[in-house]
């Protein structure tokens, strides 16, 4: 136990006394507390509502640029540490709705092909099956052999607002991500980094091992997804995903392309995961610092 007051609740200590790690934990806790009042997945609303929430010129210019690019809708997600996974899962399933049932059949086959990775990662089938079931049932319902009514955007929205269904899907996606990272540890380990003063990783010189990273940053409930988790999940499922970065900077973290075009005209960077889009996709995720929503046009 380090300093004398280190057992006081974080929010009763001076912010300047907290380490970066503690500040990050506190931020996440406060966000989760505030977020618990919002629906898990909201209705589609006009993108222009977002402009009302910002005074910052860079943000306003970027929102305007999205609108010029005919991005008009936004579906807000609850701002907890699960928002990436929830946004990804919702958008992944919603995109299957207008496609022929064979698309869902293919998606299901892909997921099934990944199950051995979960076993390899040491997850018990008995345990992961409970989390897999809701996703499998939705994919089956969207597939050709379904006797159930085909899910619609409305019914999918309702399913995702059922806490248990929604959370089970998220846990399953976290397990897939973790299993894929572990199976491809050689490719991903060089990108691991720890928060410098996270006490759990001090012994290893700041960077966690893949095993630690997966337990603490992927499998643990409510831990946000970073670039590495997003890369792993989209690659595992071979799901093309693009993310619009609505942030202060000219370029998103990682430095893809330049944000500011000629004449100081600000554009939003779209980062693509898992290859090029073969068709013009009308879906994307919208990233704002620390949060993901679904973007429509």
């Amino acid at each position: 136990m380090s300093s004398d007051n280190s057992q006081l609740p974080l929010d009763q200590r001076k912010l300047s006394d907290l380490t970066d790690y503690e500040v990050a934990s506190l931020t996440q806790e406060l966000k989760a507390e505030e977020a618990s009042k919002r629906p898990l997945v909201g209705e589609v609303e006009p993108l222009e509502r977002l402009s009302d929430e910002y005074k910052n010129e860079t943000f306003l210019a970027k929102i305007a640029s999205l609108q010029r690019d005919s991005w008009t809708g936004l579906r807000r997600l609850r701002g907890d540490g699960d928002c990436f996974y929830r946004a990804f899962a919702f958008s992944y399933l919603e995109r299957l709705i207008p496609l022929p049932p064979s698309a869902a059949q293919l998606a299901l086959a892909k997921v099934e092909s990944l199950l051995p990775l979960l076993d390899q990662a040491g997850f018990q089938k008995d345990i992961y099956d409970d989390f897999y079931e809701p996703l499998r049932d939705l994919l089956l319902a969207l597939g050709p052999d379904s006797k159930l009514p085909r899910p619609t955007a409305t019914s999918l929205h309702a399913s995702f607002n059922d806490t248990e269904t929604s959370n089970a899907i998220i846990v399953f996606l976290r397990l897939l991500t973790s299993a894929f990272l572990r199976a491809n540890a050689d490719d991903f380990t060089p990108f691991l980094f720890g928060l410098e003063d996270d006490p759990r990783f001090m012994l290893e010189g700041g960077a966690p091992t893949m095993d630690q990273f997966c337990s603490f940053h992927v499998e643990a409930v409510n831990k946000e997804a970073d670039h590495i988790q997003i890369t792993a999940l989209t690659r595992a499922l071979s799901v093309y995903t693009r993310i619009a970065y609505l942030d202060q900077s000219g370029a998103p973290p990682g430095g893809f392309g330049a944000g500011a075009g000629e004449n100081g005209d600000v554009k939003v960077d779209f980062v693509e995961f898992e290859g090029e889009s073969e068709e013009k996709l009308n879906g994307a995720l919208l990233y704002r610092p620390g949060h993901y929503d679904v973007l429509y046009r």
């Binding site: 018990q124 345990i127 846990v171 397990l175 759990r200 337990s215 643990a220 409930v221 831990k223």
Partner: peptide
């Protein structure tokens, strides 16, 4: 113990 808090994961039992 962090395993009961931020280190908890639903695959634990």
């Amino acid at each position: 113990a962090s395993v009961l808090g931020s280190g908890w994961s639903p695959v634990l039992n």
